[in-house]
Computed example of a mutant assay.
Amino acid sequence: MSSASFDAERAVRMGREALQVEARALAELAPRLGEAFARAVQAMLGCRGRVAVMGMGKSGHVGRKIAATLASTGTPALFVHPAEAAHGDLGMVTPSDVVLALSNSGESDELNAILPVLRRLGVPVLAMTGRAESSLASHADIVLDSAVAEEACPLQLAPTASTTAQMALGDALAVALLDARGFKAEDFARSHPGGALGRKLLTHVRDLMRSGEALPRVAAGTPFTEVMREMSAKALGMAVVVDAQDRVQGIFTDGDLRRLVEQGRDLRALTAAEVAHPRPRTVGPEALAVDAADLMEAARITVVLVVDAGQRLLGAVSINDLMRAKVI
């Protein structure tokens, strides 16, 4: 068909029909979850090894995604290609593992060829199939019904609704498992340290704060000109007023400077204690960086001080520090 004869309305209609078929497949799948699903979750929950997910063709592609989802939500899992398993990769599977085998027809030659070996190893086999009477189902300890009434493909050839059902059923297993494990956002972050969630939940203030000589700090009696010199040298847009024990007494910021200029004050005659704001916002070093970001946003400030339990100055973190670390 040439582009000149392309029927845009028909294309949209076909797309909508495909989505409707797949939506119906999922709607019909949900009520069928029952005792077998609970047993499958229990078997995976009690697994002392890993969940080895297997599947050929499109089911294999879905299986890879299911294995990845399980692994990232607290259930150790890997994908084992059935054809490669018959030529050595079956050594990846141990008696401590559980196998989740996917096949819509349940008659995948490569998959069925290794099922007797898995049985001899004593490995529990969970089958996800659209045919309860298939060879795969007959070899399985637990059968998860992923049957669909029709494929979204108008020729009823390309796996479409059936693979969507498999994908959704895999997600359902992962969700039920993470809930049973008490898996939390912090646990998810540990498996995703390079992602945005990992940075938010794993980065602490202590990891980002500026400390030591990088901190602009002055004594209460420091003349205003020296305060400005310290602020300029450390380029944090503020100076911290501390006592002899390094306890925080106040903070002077660029914003405070602008307000003093607007008031027409004789700045040269002032000391650090006279210009400083006495109650600066502070956090502890163990606070999450994202919590420091929330504090800055709520208080409309760009720097927050880091102190210990005795209010001694440990460091400071700025909004620029958080942005560089991609916390915000």
Rank of each mutant, 00 (worst) to 15 (best):
M1D: 04
S2L: 09
S3K: 09
R10C: 04
M14N: 07
E22W: 00
A23G: 09
L29E: 01
A30N: 00
P31L: 06
A36P: 00
A43P: 00
L45W: 07
G46L: 08
A52I: 09
M54R: 01
G55A: 09
G60M: 01
T69K: 01
L70E: 09
P76R: 10
H87Q: 01
H87N: 05
G88D: 09
L90N: 06
M92G: 03
S103D: 08
S105H: 12
L111A: 01
N112W: 14
G122D: 08
L126F: 05
S134V: 08
S138Y: 08
L144S: 07
D145V: 01
A152N: 12
A152R: 07
C153K: 05
C153I: 06
P154L: 02
L157H: 04
A161R: 01
A165W: 04
A174K: 04
L177Y: 02
L177Q: 04
L177M: 09
D179S: 13
D179Q: 15
A180E: 08
A180W: 01
F183P: 03
D187A: 10
D187T: 03
F188I: 13
H192R: 15
G194E: 11
G195L: 11
A196D: 12
R199Q: 14
V205A: 13
S211E: 13
R217E: 15
E226C: 10
E226W: 03
R229D: 06
V240S: 09
D243A: 09
R247C: 13
I251H: 03
F252Y: 14
R258Y: 07
E274M: 14
T282P: 00
V283S: 05
L288M: 14
A289I: 12
V290P: 00
A293N: 01
A298Q: 15
A298F: 03
I301N: 13
Q311E: 15
L313F: 08
A316N: 05
A316L: 15
S318C: 11
I328N: 14
I328Q: 07
